[in-house]
Design a protein around this nucleic acid. Structure first.
Length: 305
DNA sequence: TAAGATAAGAGGGACAT
DNA sequence: ATGTCAGTCTTATCTTA
């Protein structure tokens, strides 16, 4: 357990907040509020205030910020390589060999349990995928959190780390409202779409998550950026999409398919000629699906076409 | 060459057994 | 737990303009 001073948003007290070292859950010691993310708390700013350089140096808290994306949450210390003592003098032979033994154990203790080894490997992979997928830090942290929980529930057993991790990333990006499709994540992490979606459903089920619907308006923005359509068309498409969502046509359909169709029709209306093939590729659906969505929009919302 | 149509097949959710 | 069914999406192929 790690303790720090935070302001709980539930009881508004600057109380001691305890972080569960296992799950990363945050507990307010004043009102007992348990939260799975730190949005319910804000860092108490009072003790950070500094009015001159000396105070600032005095009050700065050194060290890396805590992160869930390392198996030890980035809190461990490591015995360094140079064989020198604190004053910079070379160590004698017996001390030198002792430090070597300590280094060995230092390393063994840090990544010792099977759980830690698993997490270490998973987060190594997470770091690799972060760049490929272009995901912001909050999504990565969230993914690490979801993975820890899944791991604790024994869900990685019998499955690959890669699949569970990728599913965690998908969950995290959905929750953060960053549109990434299952297919995108699957192909970048070299897992089959099928396996990924299976693990994803399992995680949602076992962790009892309520993953929000992907915002179709965000999908519009994503496709529009890829296709480099004009600002005017984009705005047209977004207002169009609001109408579509209001009628409930979008329910049960792939939001990327809908977004692609809406954007395609908006382009036609604004005399921007693009092919269905291009839109299908940018949306990650087939032309047929795109056409079907277009047809539905034509029949169900004729006043907007 | 782009768009439209059709058919077969896969995978998953809802529901009953 | 297992099977069935309706609905969705994909792939492949052919036709139309």
């Amino acid at each position: 357990m790690l303790a720090s001073k935070l302001v709980c948003k539930t009881c508004s007290q600057a109380s001691d907040v305890v972080t569960d070292a296992e799950s990363g859950e945050i507990i307010c010691t004043n009102c007992g509020m348990v939260n799975s993310n730190d949005k319910a708390f804000q860092v108490s700013t009072a003790e950070w205030r500094a009015f001159d350089h000396n105070q600032m140096m005095d009050r700065s808290r050194v060290g890396m910020p805590m992160t869930l994306t390392r198996h030890d949450k980035g809190l461990s210390t490591v015995i360094g390589i140079p064989n020198k003592d604190a004053s910079g003098k070379e160590l004698d032979d017996s001390m030198r060999s002792m430090m070597q033994r300590l280094r060995t154990w230092d390393h063994r203790i840090q990544v010792s349990s099977p759980t830690d080894r698993n997490l270490a490997r998973a987060f190594q992979r997470l770091e690799m995928l972060r760049g490929k997928l272009g995901l912001p830090d909050n999504v990565i942290e969230k993914a690490a959190y979801v993975y820890r929980k899944a791991q604790r529930l024994g869900m990685v057993k019998g499955r690959t780390i890669a699949a569970t991790l990728s599913a965690s990333i998908y969950v995290a990006s959905r929750e953060a409202g960053v549109p990434r499709t299952l297919a995108e994540i699957a192909s970048l992490s070299n897992i089959s779409h099928k396996e990924l979606s299976r693990v994803y459903r399992l995680i949602v089920l076992n962790l009892d998550l309520k993953v929000p619907m992907i915002d179709p308006v965000k999908c519009i923005a994503k496709i529009a950026n890829k296709m480099e359509v004009s600002e005017k068309t984009k705005r047209h498409a977004i207002s169009y999409m609001h109408n579509v969502v209001a009628t409930g046509i979008a329910a049960g359909k792939d939001p990327m398919g809908i977004a692609g169709a809406v954007l395609y029709l908006s382009c036609i209306q604004n005399d921007e000629h693009r092919t269905q093939i291009d839109f299908a590729a940018a949306s990650g659906v087939t032309e047929v699906t795109l056409r079907n969505r277009c047809k539905e929009l034509h029949t169900k919302l004729p006043q907007l076409n």
